[in-house]
Amino acid sequence: MTAVLDTRGVTKTFAGVQALSDVSLLVEPGERVGLIGPNGAGKTTFFNCVLGVLRAERGQVLLDGEDVSALPVHERARRGIGRTFQRIELFGESTVRDHLLIAERVRRGDGRLWRDLLGRGRPSADEVAACDRVLEQLGLAELAEEPIEHLSLGQGRLVEVGRALMTRPRLLLLDEPSSGLDRRETADLAATLRAVQQAQGFAILLVEHDVELVANFTSRSYVLDFGTLIAEGPTDEVLASSLVREAYLGPGGGPG
C-alpha cells in the first residue's frame, strides 16, 4: 500500500541554522501519527515544507506516491493535504458556514468568472447541504450563521477543521490544536476529531507538544529535536524512551 505522506530527507536551513536535517517519515492511509518535540525542534517548519509554504533545500515530499515537492501550496492542497494552524487563521467578516462554502466551491473547481457574471455564483442548495453535514458532525450546526468574530478559540479551531474537511483531504495536518485550549476543550476536540476521522478515513499527522493529547490520540509517533528525528515507533513506547525525556527535560531529567 502506498503511504499517504512520504517525506525523504527533507532539509531546511535558515541563515545557516539547520532547522531540519534529513527528515524522512511515513504516514499510512487512515493512520493517526504524532510528531512531537520540544519548542523550536522544527515541527512547524516541517509542516510548512510538507505544504510548500517553505521550500526545502533538499529532499522530496511524496503524496500518495506522487512527488509534489515542486508544487505551490494551493496545488498540494488540491491534491489532498488539509491543515489547521497553530495561530488560528480564519477569514474575517464572514460566517462559519462561509468558511466551509468557499472551501467546497474551490474543491468542486467550478468557480469561473462568467458564472458569477451570469448570477450563478451564489452557493447552491447542494453545497449548503454538504457544508451543513460537516458542521453537524463537528457540533457547529447552531453556529452556522454566526460571524466568525463571535466564536471562542475552541470553536474557531473546529471551524478550521471543518474548512479543511471540505477539501476532502487524504491527509490532515493538525498544528498544535491544543494551544490556547484548556484540558476539557482539548479532550472534546480530540473526541470530535477521532469520530470524524473514523467516519471519513483520512490520515492525520498531529504536531503537538501536549504529550497527553499525543498519547491518547495517536498510535505511532515521531520525535523531532533540533531538526533531526531522534525516535519513532508506537506512541507509548516513544514517550517512555529515555532519549525523548532527555530532549524534553534535558540530560538526567525526571519522569515526564
Binding site: 480564519l90 468557499i102 450563478r120 479543511a164
Partner: peptide
C-alpha cells in the same frame, strides 16, 4: 454578482488570511 459569487468569496478569504486560503486550494 462578483461579490456574492465565487470570485468575491475567494477574494474575501484571501483578504482574511492568505495562508489559510492557499491551504484550501485557492
Amino acid at each position: 454578482a462578483i461579490r456574492s459569487g465565487t470570485v468575491g468569496r475567494t477574494l474575501a478569504a484571501l483578504r482574511g488570511s492568505e495562508v489559510a486560503s492557499e491551504s484550501i486550494g485557492i
